[in-house]
Simulated scan of single mutants.
Amino acid sequence: MRFSAVPVVLLAGLVLSGCGFSSNRDRVAAQQPSRETTSSVAQSPSPMPAANVGTAASQAQPPQEMAWAGPVPEPQAFVPVARTTGMPVPSERPIALIAPENPAIEEAPPTRGQVYSHRFRDAKPINFGSRSPRKLAVHGVDVSRWQGDINWAKLRTQGANFAYIKATDGGDHLDPMFKKNWRRAKEAGLKRGAYHFFYWCRTAGEQADWFIRNVPREAGALPPVIDVEWNGESSCKRRPSRERVLEKMQVFMDKLERHYGQRPIIYTAPDFYRDNLKGAFPNHPFWLRSVAAHPSKVYPGRKWLFWQYSGSGLSHGVDGRIDLNVFHGSEDEWHSWVAARSS
């Protein structure tokens, strides 16, 4: 059967136009970004950092360039790809909830310094009975110019785990061995602090300023100490009233606490305590001199942090006699107390 020429031409035109429409549709579809996630693009485990909007760097970015994937390839016909087991699957949950967070890095706890056992001797030993200072774990010393040139490394191995070092008197005297002792005690690994001998003939503010001027503020140093006692050998013979004593001490201690960030320790002896300090300063730590009996007998009801139990100690590393002291607590309690002072 023969077809008319016109219908044949029309039919051919429809076929060709259909092919062209289909080709354009595929080309447009190929240019659309694929929503598939493939292993060819590494996925960041956490959100990408946001770029600064409007900066020269962002404006210079080519429109067809991806920083993490390179140039966009030429459009190709879509070819279905079978899903691979383990391939990341897009989620509607926020990335912050599904991306693994980096675990917090905990700093290693500071290394505890070795606590050396008590190996001191005593020129005038006292029998303290069942409450002997020897039963406590952490012993130490206090020193001044009168101990001369100290071998600190040897003194430490004898049981001096801490040292309180004489720094200042009144408002104008610096112990000539303070700087050397301060430096060498630290080099030997002792925990050390400084103490001030209080003069009742100088203002508290002057004395605090003098101490601050000469004693460095260092991380890890033990709290400063105010030494209050009646001293018959001192050039100052004045004995103020109890009210005046407490007032002057408060001024001095407040100024040191503001500067060093640690509450000062009060060192005292039995007669001075009896005259002035019984019941006073309940929130301050005390360092008590008691060389003939346990502090509980000499200072009833008073909590204490350090006990000076001898003024006639003997040890390798120092010539002559030396004051012996002990911390009121176990070895673990000592480490905890020191760590709290260092934070």
Rank of each mutant, 00 (worst) to 15 (best):
L10M: 14
F21M: 15
S22F: 14
V28D: 15
A29M: 15
Q31E: 09
P33L: 06
E36A: 03
T37S: 11
T38P: 06
S44M: 03
P45A: 02
Q59Y: 12
V81Y: 09
P88D: 05
S91H: 10
P100S: 01
N102S: 14
N102C: 14
N102M: 12
V115Q: 12
V115H: 08
R119G: 10
P125F: 10
S130N: 13
P133L: 05
K135H: 09
A137L: 07
H139F: 06
D142F: 08
R145M: 13
W146Q: 13
D149A: 10
I150Y: 07
W152N: 07
T157R: 02
A160N: 01
A163I: 03
D169R: 03
A185V: 07
R192K: 04
F197L: 04
A204W: 00
Q207W: 05
W210V: 01
A219G: 08
L222Y: 06
D227H: 01
G232L: 06
E233I: 06
C236R: 02
V245N: 10
K248F: 13
E257I: 01
R258V: 13
Y267D: 10
K278L: 03
G279N: 06
N283L: 04
W287F: 00
A292M: 13
H294R: 02
G301F: 01
K303E: 11
Y309V: 06
S310K: 12
S312W: 12
S315G: 00
S315K: 05
R321N: 14
I322P: 01
D323I: 10
D323M: 00
H335W: 00
W337M: 07
V338I: 04
A340W: 13
A340K: 15
A340D: 14
